[in-house]
Design a protein around this nucleic acid. Structure first.
Lengths: 139, 139
DNA sequence: TCGGTCGTGAAGTTATCGGTCAAAAGCGAT
DNA sequence: ATCGCTTTTGACCGATAACTTCACGACCGA
């Protein structure tokens, strides 16, 4: 039930990279951390995890930084959640042989509801919302 | 993303009480703990929480034990999850002013998907499944 | 070669989880 | 009235994970 901030940080970071995806230039860690109020040293660890799952790429050196490994439309929130934690929605009940089948079925229904929703939201959709709604209701 | 076993224990316990709801007689803690493989001393804490939220009732003394406070059809999985944890699906992102609106919207969608599903499953439905499927596929 | 960037591991703090234990308090039956 | 059975309460503990910071190494481009 309780999500960690880590997954939220990850989604913010990928969103930040999605915004500047067309530019083609990588973005520095401190830059992203600064925009989204993420502890820089913590963000590094998160980005490394995202990199190991081929969601982002890194470049070292003077013009280094991070960029998306594929178009925003091909990355979903479910992908990020599965990368950072093992699953979108995980309960020990499903692995517990003592849990009655009926209850396991119920857990599975809830799990799939969350999973399907997360897999349906890709970062291109978020970008579209951002350009449409963001400019109108921005305070 | 990671659920605790506590909520699973709670659901098992309430399910156990639902099964014997029509009998009208309370069920002892150790009895429930034994059937569903729940540490008895841990189950006590869970039942007390459930009682404080008026989901179950208790009865002391020689013929004491626990029983449901209302019919199984009026108790949903969402009720249990909200009782044990604060919410069915909780992410710190929704309370973080630094989290962009677009991303908060996405979190809300996932949250509502899980919440609606959990609220749709009441214990009468589980009982119905139990009597229908349980007897056929029981090993 | 030098400055800036990522990469990595370690360390520490805090919180939560899962579980145990020992009494106290209340109720029913006899 | 008392006795046994049950819930009630609250304290406690070890392990694990979350979150964060730090220091230093590796690497690249100019």
């Amino acid at each position: 039930m309780k999500l960690s901030v880590k997954s939220d940080y990850a989604i913010r970071a990928v969103f930040g990279l999605a915004v500047s995806f067309h530019a083609g230039k990588p973005r520095r860690v401190d830059d992203i951390a600064d925009e989204f109020n993420i502890p820089p040293n913590y963000l590094v660890q998160i980005l490394i995890e995202l990199k190991s799952k081929r969601i982002v790429r890194s470049h070292r050196g003077r013009v280094g930084g991070y960029s998306l490994a594929c178009p925003p439309s091909e990355i979903t929130l479910g992908d990020i959640l599965r990368c950072i934690h093992g699953a979108v929605y995980d309960t020990p009940a499903l692995n517990d042989p003592n849990c009655p089948r009926i209850i396991k079925n119920a857990w599975t229904r809830i799990k799939e509801a969350a999973e399907n929703t997360a897999d349906d939201i890709d970062f291109q959709k978020l970008l579209d919302q951002s350009s449409k709604v963001g400019n109108i209701y921005y305070i």
